[in-house]
């Protein structure tokens, strides 16, 4: 009855005010709401995309960034196929909190989860506090994919979700192949050359 080939759950995490909700709304609704209120708790949206004829349903969970909501948001990490760890390139502090978020992931997410680091708000280039190279190096050291986006200008937002979908499809296929020794070694990293995977708009 349900019309899709794959269903993936993606959870956005990261400090308050880095633009998680705006990324989700840009991707799912094509909107950039001015003055988007802080997310209280958790929310989710769905978007089905087609990648090379394969229908992929993305269930995107948006979480409150403030620390005191963590007890609620944590329980949604576990079943996530992918995490979008977001920071704000104009806010050093949101970058410095990343190790703390990685500990959260380590503790609460499943060890096969694909994590992508996203530096948002590149439209505010003149206010940049975190250099791209620094973030790339950090992401690489942690075996994370890295992408910079602007939810406001819609830069790389489609790409973010579609690339992620590609990686997840590949992983899913891989898992079906090695069905018998199911779990890949934890900490193996996900150095998949995913960027060339999708050529769709």
């Amino acid at each position: 009855m349900e019309d899709y080939d794959y269903l993936f759950k993606i959870v956005l995490i990261g400090n308050a005010g880095v633009g998680k909700t705006c990324l989700v709304r840009r991707f799912t609704q094509g909107l950039f709401p001015p003055g988007q209120g802080a997310t209280i708790g958790v929310d989710f949206m769905i978007k089905t995309v087609e990648i090379k004829g394969v229908k992929v349903k993305l269930q995107i969970w948006d979480t409150a960034g403030q620390e005191r909501f963590r007890s609620i948001t944590q329980s949604y990490y576990r079943s996530a196929n992918a995490l979008i760890l977001t920071y704000d390139i104009t806010c050093e502090d949101s970058f410095r909190c990343l190790p703390e978020w990685l500990r959260e992931i380590e503790q609460y997410a499943n060890n096969q989860v694909v994590t992508i680091l996203v530096g948002n708000k590149i439209d505010l280039a003149e206010k940049r506090e975190v250099h791209r190279q620094r973030a790339e190096e950090f992401a690489e050291a942690q075996s994370m994919l890295y992408l910079e986006t602007s939810a406001k200008e819609s830069d790389n937002v489609e790409k973010l979700f579609l690339d992620l979908a590609c990686v997840l499809i590949r992983e899913a296929k891989q898992n079906t192949l090695d069905n018998n020794d199911s779990a890949p070694m934890p900490g193996e990293g996900k150095n998949i050359n995913y960027l060339s995977c999708c050529n769709i708009n």
Partner: peptide, 14 residues
Amino acid sequence: VDVIERDLHRQFPF
């Protein structure tokens, strides 16, 4: 102060 400041412009912006 930092978190509060980030929230000021997004309360009932209309």
